[in-house]
Amino acid sequence: MKITDLTSPTEEAIPVRKHSNCDLPFYRPLGRTNLTVSCLGLGGGGQISSEDTLYAFDQGINFFFYSSDLHHYLYSSMAGALRQLCGRKSRVREQVVLATVSYIVKTPDAIFSSLYDQFVDLGIDYIDIFFWGWIGADNAGDLQNCLNASNDIRGPNTVCQRTMERIFSTSERLKKMGAVRYIGASFHDHHLARQWLNNSLLDVVMVRHNVAHRTAQQEVFAQLDPQDSQRSGIVTFKSAGMHNFLGDPPVNLPKGCWQPTVPDLYRYSLSQNCVDVCLTGLTRREEVDAAIANVQQGKLSTAELDYLALYGDLHRQRVNVQDVPAERWYQPLAAAL
């Protein structure tokens, strides 16, 4: 017997609904990933119901964020909708971007127990973005350790995919996508986030950002080139405040000044350089409608951005009303009139 032939050896597009085309497109690529995301993301922190989660999807929101450990009690109210949208039998799975998080960041092996919980909880084939959560200076070393395993976790034909196949049996989608498609990290330390920007082991960077806490603007967003197709994807969270609810006017706000709505605060994040998604904690469908209508107005003007920074500083008592010229307080309102 011998070898006989000695002659010369030799994505599916995701359909998305269109929204008005302006300087703040509703759908955009998420950094260097192959994902197309809505600029508004929906997390379960506001205990939105499954019914209204499905409504948000029908209105065009396709980025959903889910936690199966910390805050699981809050997030579980949206689990039914995510099972319907992302479960093994879903016919719309490819239209959804499912991001999940684990706050147990110690070793790469910890991912298996988180994935197990999430796969059982949501009945899914794969996760689009797995986030290592709550990263600060105290667990920076653990994050390094976990991100070193990114190439064994993300994509098809990896240890991670095979391990999940052994537990849950395989499926076409699991084979094609891998158990996890991309890796993200949610930072509470902006300096650390900056160090990891554009790193090949980390696809999506999530940072806290709002009108009162704007460090991310210099530390993170300004470091990115919007023309760079290989840059990190950027998601912001806590746009309406963390301990202080920024939708309430600060006590010293001069009378008659613009009082931004929560959707205005989302739009503040989305008006920053390279912010792809603003993660929201919307609680009901009316808020979904208001947020979508608001972002369709496009990016905030320079005067509006300046005013909202002032508004944020006032919230943190970093500015005296009298020290600021009156036009800075009233300019955005005057422009609107």
Partner: peptide, 14 residues
């Protein structure tokens, strides 16, 4: 496997 060997060793024609 034979084709792969020949590709790797750049032995392309008969």
């Amino acid at each position: 496997a034979g084709d792969a060997f020949r590709t790797e060793h750049k032995i392309l024609g008969v």
